[in-house]
Design a protein around this nucleic acid. Structure first.
Lengths: 206, 206
DNA sequence: TATTATACGGAGGCTACCTCCGTTTAGCAA
DNA sequence: TTGCTAAACGGAGGTAGCCTCCGTATAATA
């Protein structure tokens, strides 16, 4: 954020290390990467995306050099955190469906979504330019989340407990609309609204 | 941009010194303020809004202390530059109308607009949050510019050289649309498109 | 167990931020 | 003109965050 150039067009590096691509990380490296992502996520949501990276490293219990090796710029870190959270959100759809009746899974997932958005508030100032400059990346993200929403919704519809005339994109629009119109502090308001929305989504007993 | 808090909600200070409000600045202060605004404008458009403020001060030929006295935060400076440029753009509408036939005034003003947007590109990363967080401010700005556009358009319509079925808001939408869809380097492309638009605005001889 | 590619960590140099206060000057009154 | 003073100037210097570099540690492999 200091030196010029980095802000211009970050470029969205290929998903680093862990999942696929190239040679996988050494065990300690993979561990540290994970720990860093979690520390960064917490730090960003508590103190905004301008939090000193040395604090993030300290919080993760690793040296600053390690942080920079994994994430050479603040943007790279922010992006990785975002990507990671999206992955978690998407995966949790499957997990919820595997352990709960579809209706409950839907409700919980909606609330998870609200939580994730709230967490990402602090990152927004840095995240927005990244998303704006990389329509492909933001498109993929949206696609993944929509897919998850669709899946969980379909399960409810199939079980007969959710009305059939909404799709994943609708659900996303509605929930993110609620998040957008709810500011900073009151996540509870958002949750209340999401509760209302959820009631509206259930198949009305007729 | 470093310390926390400032990024949160800058708050758009009352237009500092010069025009109305409070006691007016001492001559040297007013001069320096002006020089600083120009230096900042140039620096931002050349090197982006992250340019070191010491460079801006040096470029303006004043001490860093003077810069900070006038503009206590980077956001304040960016905002003042923006405000200043808008003023210039709005005033130039009157000046053009006073010295050129309405049709020519319109054309030149449209090109001026393109130039101003191009200049502000570098500031965007800092400017956007300010505008987003202060709908009133951005609303006023839009109002002023729309007003100027309307005035210059009406003059053309009255003179019979411009078609009568567009208003200021339309003009703005069209021109800023062109600016948005044209990227970084090629201001000439934008100017060409604006030329096309201008031809379309003239009253077709029938 | 020995070897080595990989990763760690943090000291330190660099740069930008921004305050503080001694110096300068515009504006005014006599 | 001269003297006075509130206002403004300017930049040295303290503070803090960025990021590189390289000696040390360790996981992976044979």
């Amino acid at each position: 954020m200091r030196r010029e150039g980095s802000a211009a067009s970050p470029g969205v590096a290929a998903p680093e290390g862990v999942p696929s691509a190239g040679r996988s990380l050494r065990a300690d490296a993979a561990r540290n990467r994970e720990v860093l992502l979690e520390a960064a996520s917490a730090a960003f949501s508590e103190r905004g995306a301008e939090v000193p990276l040395e604090d993030v490293a300290r919080r993760a219990g690793v040296g600053i050099g390690t942080l920079y090796r994994h994430f050479p710029t603040r943007e790279a870190l922010v992006e990785a955190v975002f990507r990671h959270e999206v992955e978690v959100l998407v995966q949790s759809a499957d997990e919820l469906l595997a352990t709960l009746p579809p209706e409950q899974a839907l409700k919980q997932w909606m609330q998870l979504f609200v939580g994730h958005v709230a967490t990402k508030r602090g990152m927004l100032a840095v995240l927005r330019p990244i998303l704006v400059d990389n329509p492909r990346f933001s498109g993929e993200t949206k696609g993944l989340v929509t897919e998850a929403a669709t899946k969980i919704l379909r399960a409810g519809i199939a079980a007969g407990s959710v009305r059939a005339d909404v799709d994943g994109a609708d659900l996303l629009r509605a929930v993110s609309g609620i998040c957008m119109s709810t500011d900073e502090g009151n996540q509870e308001a958002a949750n209340r609204l999401v509760g209302l929305l959820f009631d509206g989504l259930r198949r009305s007993p007729e």
